[in-house]
Design a protein around this nucleic acid. Structure first.
Length: 600
DNA sequence: TAAGTGCAAC
């Protein structure tokens, strides 16, 4: 739909005379309308009464419905050449701007409509800007947002708290806008829970989760009472960090401060517990809640899959079907990844077909990704390769990397090499491709080629994403990077590391030096491995926590082969359960083995 | 007629 085009021709149109009584009766009907079928009835009445060109009626029609067809219908009539321009007012424009701002992919229609409003000389009011800014946030265009901000100031709505709140939200949703959002936030004379939620949410979305949690602490000092949405936002920051202790604290805070937990809040708690390592708690919470939504089910199913408990995830999916909840595409991603993680290839294939045939869901790249992973894990590398070539959509780098890892694990090194080289051609600045290639060369014993990779990376000016590990102790979050010496107990940590190394070697641990990308001698390679952030974090935890208690750490990247092998030894030697969350899944180390069964 | 939030393949 092109609003502007439809509007152009109608500036000169004549003013029709309306039947006021009919208008009133229609408005009253719309007032009590609460369902789409009812709306359709009213629609036919509008037609019968000849009120098609009555903007008042159509505005109400638009406002009552969140149905896209109704909105499009109403706008096309409102802006048709026959409609009554003299009845165009702020309310009408606000309604349409709001309607489009609420629908994904149609946010630009909101902006188009707002521009039209200015073009016709209809004045925006303080209710206009929250809608317009919401649309800007959805589009994520910082320059657009800035220009609307300019208009806000020009029309002198800059002091309105709702406008300010949406400005914060808008800047927080646009790339590079967070600082400007913070400026608006800092300059506000008064802040309510929405202001704080918008700012905390901005940090959380950008992955600045520690900033989000810090700001939440400041909010408590400020005396503004957080609401459900604030808590959902803070929980998403906890989830991102893997900060289970902070998450638990948030849960108790919710219990103390709030009477009822909304479904949304419960879903956020479930997701937090699952992704912070306590999937049993997530399950318990899920069992205790009323009014579960598809998001609740999906969060637990995906959570179980992530912890390697695929069979339980599949059972839960079946339970969901029995409960009469129709699965959506996201639920199938969780289910298929569960099948993949517990080796249910045939069952997985059945579900994949059923998704299309029984539920009419067209598989997306993520679903194909699950299928490739499933075939790879069960050792059917060739089949996986054929599957990729037959896919109706083009494979993405994630899928290719899955296949490459499987090739390496199964000794299909030549195939791995050729795919990796092609991938580097497509994504020359993606570090993990080079790491993969270097592993392949190490396995092929092609040391000279392996050495060259580092040079290529340097020449292309690539920055290595530094590996880091988070650990939470006594409500504090500690971060370790490779070779970190910044901790005040650094000396003790490195002594612990030496002790761990000695005990591990005695138990039969051999460092996987082929992991190291640098061109250095074997001894230095061992040293480089030994300083990996996850080993530092584990050493720190062994020092600071009572014997026998579980250790939980969160790694920002995928855990490396050497750390994986070392952690297995450590779990046995020190008799500790070690729960490692990496970029993609959980590893539960216990008594010398890992829940991922060495495939990740 | 006003704001803010939650599930996704490696």
């Amino acid at each position: 739909m092109n609003i502007a085009l439809k509007a152009k021709s109608r500036l000169q149109c004549k003013i029709p005379i309306h039947d006021r009584a009919a208008e009133q009766s229609c408005l009253a009907l719309l007032q009590s309308c609460n369902s789409l079928p009812k709306l359709a009835q009213i629609h036919s009445r509008i037609l019968k009464l000849g009120l098609l060109n009555n903007p008042l009626v159509l505005t109400k029609f638009t406002a009552t419905s969140s149905d896209l067809n109704a909105i499009d219908y109403a706008t096309s009539v409102i802006f048709s050449p026959e409609s009554d321009t003299l009845l165009y007012d702020t309310f009408l424009f606000n309604t349409i701007i709001r309607a489009y701002a609420q629908i994904n992919n149609l946010k630009t229609n909101s902006i188009e409509c707002y521009n039209l409003m200015l073009e016709y000389g209809v004045s925006p009011n303080k209710f206009t800007y929250p809608f317009v800014l919401k649309a800007c946030a959805g589009i994520g265009d910082l320059n657009l947002g800035k220009s609307v901000h300019g208009a806000v100031l020009k029309f002198q709505f800059g002091d309105d708290i709702h406008v300010q709140n949406t400005l914060v939200h808008m800047y927080g949703s646009c790339e590079g806008g967070i600082e400007l959002g913070r400026k608006v936030f800092d300059e506000m004379s008064e802040r309510d829970s929405v202001s704080w939620s918008a700012m905390i949410g901005g940090y959380a979305r950008l992955g600045l989760s520690t900033d989000a949690i810090d700001l939440f602490r400041q909010m408590q000092i400020s005396g503004v009472c957080p609401d459900e949405i604030t808590m959902v936002t803070v929980l998403s920051a906890c989830t991102d960090l893997g900060a289970l202790e902070v998450g638990k604290w948030v849960e108790s805070f919710i219990e103390k401060q709030m009477v009822n937990r909304s479904v949304g809040l419960c879903n956020a708690l479930i997701d937090m517990f699952a992704k912070c390592g306590d999937v049993d708690k997530a399950l318990k919470l899920f069992r205790s809640m009323n009014g579960r939504t598809i998001v609740s089910w999906t969060s637990v199913i995906a959570g179980l899959a992530m912890h390697g408990r695929g069979l339980e995830a599949v059972a839960l999916f079946e339970e969901m079907l029995e409960a009469g909840v129709p699965p959506d595409d996201v639920a199938f991603v969780g289910l298929l990844s569960a099948c993949s993680h517990c080796g249910l290839v045939d069952k997985g294939r059945e579900y994949f077909d059923s998704m299309k045939n029984d539920f009419g869901i067209i598989p997306k790249i993520e679903h194909y990704g699950c299928m490739v992973d499933m075939l790879c894990r069960s050792g059917r590398v060739k089949e996986a390769h054929e599957f990729i070539q037959k896919m109706p959509i083009e494979a993405n780098p994630i899928i290719w990397r899955t296949l490459i890892s499987a090739c390496c694990a199964r000794g299909e090194l030549k195939l791995a090499e050729s795919i990796t080289k092609r991938l580097i051609g497509n994504e020359p600045m993606h570090e993990s491709n080079y790491v993969l290639l270097s592993h392949i060369y190490a396995k092929l014993l092609r040391w000279e080629k392996k050495t060259k990779i580092r040079e290529v990376m340097d020449k292309r000016g690539m920055k290595k994403i530094p590996g880091s590990t988070l650990i939470e102790l006594d409500n504090e979050i500690y971060e370790f990077v490779c070779g970190d010496k910044s901790h005040h107990q650094s000396k003790e940590i490195y002594e612990m590391l030496d002790e761990m190394g000695r005990k591990m070697k005695k138990a039969g641990y051999v460092p996987t030096t082929s992991e190291v990308l640098l061109d250095i001698n074997e001894e230095d390679k061992e040293d480089a491995l030994n300083k990996h952030s996850e080993k530092l974090a584990i050493a720190f935890a062994l020092l600071k926590t009572p014997p026998g208690t579980p250790i939980r750490i969160v790694k920002n990247l995928r855990v490396c082969n050497d750390c994986h092998s070392a952690t297995k030894f450590i779990s046995k030697i020190y008799n500790r359960e070690i729960v490692v969350r990496d970029r993609h899944r959980f590893h539960h180390f216990k008594d010398g083995s890992c829940s991922c069964r060495d495939f990740w």
